[in-house]
Design a protein around this nucleic acid. Structure first.
Lengths: 230, 230
DNA sequence: ACCTGAACACCGTTCAAGT
DNA sequence: ACCTGAACACCGTTCAAGT
């Protein structure tokens, strides 16, 4: 298991010309990895990890049930490709401000936002191979931290601390988002157990959280500690 | 979805006497939720989330394939019970030192260690219901933070920041642990792409990480920020 | 009350075959 | 080169039936 889709990929690339014979009006365009990945993401967004089924994906592509297996080795590869596709980073906004702190915060908030747009993605990321897009993000993060003055020996630790925080925050947020009703129900039930859990009942831990604010706050505390000077 | 296994549970509890008719030497003891959960944890530890199958679980219990369904609604409940069972907290060591910082660090490191002993558990936790054991941990964490001087209005944010960090660190660590070879292979491949990823190649991001040290360091930075005074 | 096997619906994947 | 349906192995769960 590892970064797939690199240049060593032996998957076929369709040449621009020579569209396949049947191209009548209204018929679907031919299959391609791009279409497969795009449709897989649609399906995942709509129905979650459990909703991605090879037959259903083929159906939605207007293809025969088993056609996918010519383009893709197996379902795992679909996951890998969909995941990395969702993690593309378009770079910092506007002009370089040369403000490393703002840059890092932007990078990490953008990363989190990208994953929250596809709530299945964050849970998947730690379990799957590191694709080129996530590697680029890590590279950029590492370079910026280094420029900001983090010692070479501390760089690994700093990158992983931030990774851990972003991943944890996003996975938690994404899952709570999916089950707001459940959390409300759970908080209800907590009320009946207030002798056992008085504190988290009192502060209504399971409700009304300012996730975005809490995320940025914790992130700033981490950066205060991880990056010297400033 | 919510905290299950509470006192409102309508699952049968076997009365101490009246062992079922067949209890010949060498035969398995009768089924019980306790045995089911314990064996499920064994299976999960040995084979990961994908290795838990209802038939296999029944087999290992020496029971007929479908006997489990009398004790348990479905597979999800097995997951919920196994997960919370693994999260029991036995409290701080020795005498109360009244040192909140040490107490919190101990609680969170113990939490992480409990999950690392069962590498499937961390990934599961954010997706599943909050059982009594994890709720107790959150309650204790909240109470300690409160005693340490965190304002009532900041308590939610502080608890979730720590949750996020612990969850992210543990999920990442558990998964990298499972695939050390993969990471080595990935780092190898990175070497070939050092023009694209020079920084993370140079610091060997995917290798030789001091996970435990990095965890404690980041945790301390978070606590520095989250808890006033000190 | 507790356990069981047969059966169903479903899913990922292989394969031999089509064009 | 690209697509296809039939078939296989497997899995969660229901159900009617046993004791």
């Amino acid at each position: 298991m590892a970064a797939k889709g690199g240049p060593q990929d032996k998957r076929p690339r369709r040449r621009a010309g020579s569209l396949s014979s049947m191209q009548q009006a209204g018929s679907e365009p031919a299959l391609s990895i791009e279409r497969i990945v795009a449709t897989a993401i649609e399906l995942l967004d709509a129905e979650g990890v459990g909703g991605l089924k090879m037959r259903r994906l083929a159906d939605r592509l207007g293809a025969g049930a088993m056609s996918l297996y010519w383009h893709v080795d197996n379902k795992e590869e679909v996951f890998d490709l969909a995941l990395d596709s969702v993690l593309e980073y378009r770079g910092p906004p506007q002009i370089e401000a040369a403000d490393w702190r703002a840059e890092i915060v932007h990078m990490l908030e953008d990363w989190r936002a990208s994953m929250l747009r596809h709530p299945w993605s964050a849970s998947l990321l730690p379990r799957r191979a590191l694709g080129p897009n996530i590697l680029s993000r890590l590279e950029l993060l590492g370079r910026t931290l280094s420029e900001a003055g983090v010692a070479e020996a501390d760089l690994n630790g700093a990158i992983w601390s931030l990774w851990n925080y972003v991943i944890g925050a996003t996975i938690t947020r994404a899952n709570f988002d999916l089950s707001d009703d459940d959390m409300a129900a759970a908080q209800q039930r907590l009320a009946h157990l207030s002798e056992k859990y008085p504190t988290i009942e009192r502060v209504r831990l399971l409700l009304d959280n300012d996730w975005d604010g809490a995320f940025r706050k914790g992130l700033n505390f981490l950066l205060d500690g991880l990056v010297p000077g400033q």
